[in-house]
Design a protein around this nucleic acid. Structure first.
Length: 112
DNA sequence: CACGTGACATACC
DNA sequence: GGGTATGCCACGT
C-alpha cells in the first residue's frame, strides 16, 4: 500500500499531463513533490483509478515499462498512438513527446 | 538487522 | 547500443 496523500498527489500531477504528451516515472515523482522516488510511482499506478493518465507514463529512456507483447504494454501503446504519440519498437522519442514544464512553477502551484 | 525485489534513474565503461 | 554499478524507497523474508 502507498500513502493516500501520495496517491492523490500523483493523480493530480497526472491530470496535468496534456493529451499527446508523455512523462517519465522520475519526473512524475519530482512534479509530485517526491524527488528520488521513481520506483514508488509504479506502486502508485497499481492503486490509482483506471481513468487516470497512466498510459502517458514511460521510463526515462522512452520505453514502455511492461514486457513487450504483454496485454498492458499493448493497451498502453494503442492508447498513446491513438492520441498522436508515435511508438516505435515499444519506445517513444522523449525529445519530441515528453511533457517538461518548469519544475518549480508546478511545485509552487501545487504548494509542495 | 541484512538482504532481495520492484511499472526506476543516472553515470560510466 | 548493451552491461554493470550505485542510489533511491517501501515491503517482505
Amino acid at each position: 500500500m502507498v500513502n493516500k496523500a501520495v496517491i492523490l498527489r500523483v493523480e493530480k500531477t497526472l491530470s496535468l499531463v496534456p493529451e499527446g504528451y508523455v512523462i517519465s516515472y522520475g519526473y512524475l515523482a519530482d512534479l509530485s513533490g517526491l524527488p528520488g522516488r521513481a520506483r514508488m510511482m509504479g506502486k502508485c499506478l497499481q492503486e490509482i483509478e483506471v481513468d487516470c493518465n497512466w498510459h502517458r507514463v514511460l521510463r526515462a529512456d522512452g520505453k514502455i515499462a511492461f514486457p513487450v507483447g504483454s496485454a498492458r504494454a499493448d493497451e498502453q501503446r494503442i492508447r498513446l498512438v491513438s492520441e498522436g504519440v508515435n511508438v516505435k519498437n515499444g519506445r517513444v522519442n522523449m525529445k519530441k513527446f515528453a511533457w517538461s514544464p518548469d519544475l518549480h512553477t508546478i511545485l509552487f502551484e501545487l504548494k509542495y
